[in-house]
Design a protein around this nucleic acid. Sequence first.
DNA 1: GATACCGGTATCCTTTTGGATAGTAGTATC
DNA 2: GATACTACTATCCAAAAGGATACCGGTATC
Lengths: 127, 127
Amino acid sequence: MMIQYKTKPTAEACLASINAVRDALYVLNGKWKMPLIIALVNGPKRFKDIQRSLQDITPKVLSKELRDLEMNEFVERKVFDTVPVTVLYELTPYADTLGPILEALRAWGTEHRQRIVESRRSEPVAV
Amino acid sequence: MMIQYKTKPTAEACLASINAVRDALYVLNGKWKMPLIIALVNGPKRFKDIQRSLQDITPKVLSKELRDLEMNEFVERKVFDTVPVTVLYELTPYADTLGPILEALRAWGTEHRQRIVESRRSEPVAV
DNA sequence: GATACCGGTATCCTTTTGGATAGTAGTATC
DNA sequence: GATACTACTATCCAAAAGGATACCGGTATC
């Protein structure tokens, strides 16, 4: 049997990173959460306005995603007693701490799309 | 009817950000992809070693995730003609461009866990 | 001969995710 | 009176993600 260094320094650090990223993904995972947060960075929006920003999201899914974000304290739901009622969704200060993640994803996504487009150009066309 | 500024500068920029993030998520989404990439940052690993790093991942899922990462050019699979064969999975230079995203997630995840732990401390215990 | 390691597959199943479609109460508008 | 808006909910369904379990051929080890 081989002697295993179960806690090699690099292995330990690696495991810690993996777990930290898993913790982050646990609340941010999914198709809509981060795009939805971005949709609110320029100020609070109403339900239908968000739906328009994120074209293609159905009301059921949007409603569920908003509830998730509320539970994780990224979003606050504010109801105004107008007639008919107005509901605004607003980012919390805690959501602001996601800035670096969102900016990194935005930057990388932009480059990635460029890369894909360019690689398509040099490929034969498949029918 | 209200006149809508369909292409307000901020709305345009917002939409571009949303789409960029969506592009990024399209290849990075899921429970395992980013943790898996981190498991390989300290050098190439063998199948079983990765499985041990990401405790709990089943071979079927790991195999699928590795194939996905290979298709997106984040990982290269290298087979060595030993007896029995040795297979190494190694990050490509393109995977290195994910550095800022992973680092941002790691940092945020670490803080987030702290926050959760602290908020649990001040809560009544539910049975 | 039994067991263990390697690099996976095969099969089956559950859960989660996401979507399509329709509908609701209330107001306002044409 | 018909239609449209807001902020959703209800129902049903398809697809994807993820997991449990078992297994394979080959080698090596006890």
